[in-house]
Write a protein that binds this DNA or RNA. Structure first.
Length: 420
DNA sequence: TCTGGGGTCCTAGGACCC
DNA sequence: TCTGGGGTCCTAGGACCC
């Protein structure tokens, strides 16, 4: 059996743990740069604040409804997430961290008639007691079905007490007939549209389509999903998730049509990717550069482009990655287009201490020591004191975070003081 | 004025190989 | 008149997830 454990309104719940004033009140958490709403408490959902709302359009609505609006505090959420994860590992060794607020658990070799309702309840109570985060648990014979079960638990908190187990054919059919096709894991907007044309409205309808038709019209992914929903386990637990790609992408404050400005940004993003690579002990041999115009400004010329560069040897040197990315961006850039977003993605990741060497081409061995020195200085003095020359030395790259809560669990100065 | 960011996986088409 | 078949790799783009 599989379980999906999902934290309720995770970011909003994290904020509440350390700020009891927010209990029972509507709250909303913003995306990077305080752009739009990405997490809401139940109370904020009830008064009608939509997901993804751009805050500049909803500011007065929030004020009128007493919604507390906060910038996102990723150090806090990341730390809370790993605390939840470590609790889950006590319930089974087989845990897959699926996202910051969701994990799949697999129960291998449990007794045939094991009481998963009780076990799910224990998991919820333990997490709530030790971290203060409320969760929902769905249990079923496959991953996709455990996702469905989780939705049932969340939708009917009173009836289920936050735990729902699909352990019979009857319950499976009932749940599949209840869940709308667009709410099924793996069915997004595009597929929903095509499936509705086939009169497919629920997950159950989806499982009634023929395997051949699915295979012919969709990809292998949808076929696997169908099998999983039928109760035939096809999707496996993925425990050791090593990242396959690392990205740094940002929207700009305004639009820019100056190639030199964009080159500087790309160089900075590339440097950031290289730092992330070094932090996790990886090197890359593929670099992808992205550029796109402002999709909200329909009257302007639209352009989205990308360029993939392969490097003959794996690298995590800021100099190499930045140079290649800057070279690549000139071929993507279209003169006259006003760009709003850019990014660098590194892919083809291999462990730095163990990769296939190339006989003829290799990185300048000095880079390794240079990068080590740069990382050391930047850690010691902070604020990106050492930059490469293609970056803007004057620019301090800070996100807009005007309503940030303290880093309660990761910064010694932010620890809560209790007064007696 | 202000509309996020970081991931995964799959496919199609073209170039190339034997 | 009849003009193959089986591969790999690269690139761009699209779908999905949280």
């Amino acid at each position: 059996m599989f379980a999906l454990v999902d934290c309720n309104n995770f970011y909003a719940s994290c904020e509440r743990v350390f700020n009891p004033n927010l209990q029972g009140k509507p709250i909303a958490i913003l995306s990077n740069n305080d752009g739009c709403v990405i997490s809401r408490s139940d109370e904020a959902k009830t008064v009608g604040l939509p997901m993804g709302a751009p805050i500049f359009k909803w500011e007065s609505f929030c004020k009128a409804n007493g919604i507390s609006v906060l910038s996102s505090n990723y150090p806090l959420y990341g730390d809370m997430s790993s605390r939840v994860m470590s609790i889950l590992k006590q319930f089974t060794p087989d845990v897959e961290l699926y996202s910051i607020d969701e994990s799949f658990l697999e129960f291998k070799n449990f007794e045939e008639d094991y009481n998963y309702d009780d076990y799910g309840d224990k998991i919820r109570k333990q997490i709530l007691k030790w971290t203060g985060i409320p969760t929902c648990v769905g249990v079923a014979p496959t991953k996709a079905l455990s996702k469905v079960a989780n939705k049932v638990a969340r939708k009917f908190p009173k009836e289920t007490n936050g735990v729902y187990v699909i352990d019979s054919e009857e319950k499976r059919i009932k749940a599949l007939k209840w869940i709308k096709i667009e709410d099924v894991w793996g069915i997004g907007r595009g597929l929903t549209k095509r499936l509705k044309l086939k009169k497919c409205k629920t997950a159950f309808d989806f499982t009634q389509l023929s395997d051949d038709w699915i295979r012919k019209n969709f990809s292998i992914t949808e076929w696997k999903l169908k099998k999983d929903l039928e109760g035939i386990p096809t999707l496996q637990l993925d425990e050791l998730k090593t990242k396959r790609a690392i990205a740094t992408t940002r929207s700009f404050d305004y639009t820019y049509d100056d190639i030199n400005y964009i080159k500087e940004r790309i160089s900075t993003f590339a440097t950031s990717c290289a730092e992330k690579l070094r932090k996790q002990g990886s090197s890359c041999h593929v670099i992808i550069v992205l550029l796109s115009s402002d999709r909200h400004k329909k009257t302007l010329e639209q352009h989205r482009g990308s360029k993939i560069v392969s490097i003959p040897f794996p690298t995590n040197s800021s100099l190499v990655i930045s140079n290649e990315a800057v070279k690549a961006v000139t071929s993507v850039f279209k003169k006259g287009v006003k760009y709003k977003r850019a990014g660098v993605i590194v892919s083809g990741l291999v462990p730095t201490d163990n990769f296939q060497l190339n006989m003829f081409e290799y990185e300048n061995p000095k880079h390794k020591y240079l990068m080590h020195a740069i990382d050391g200085l930047n850690t010691k003095y902070g604020d990106y004191k050492i930059k490469i020359a293609s970056q803007d030395l004057k620019r301090t790259w800070k996100m807009r975070q005007e309503r940030l809560s303290p880093r309660y669990t990761t910064n010694i100065n932010d620890i809560i003081k209790v007064k007696c």
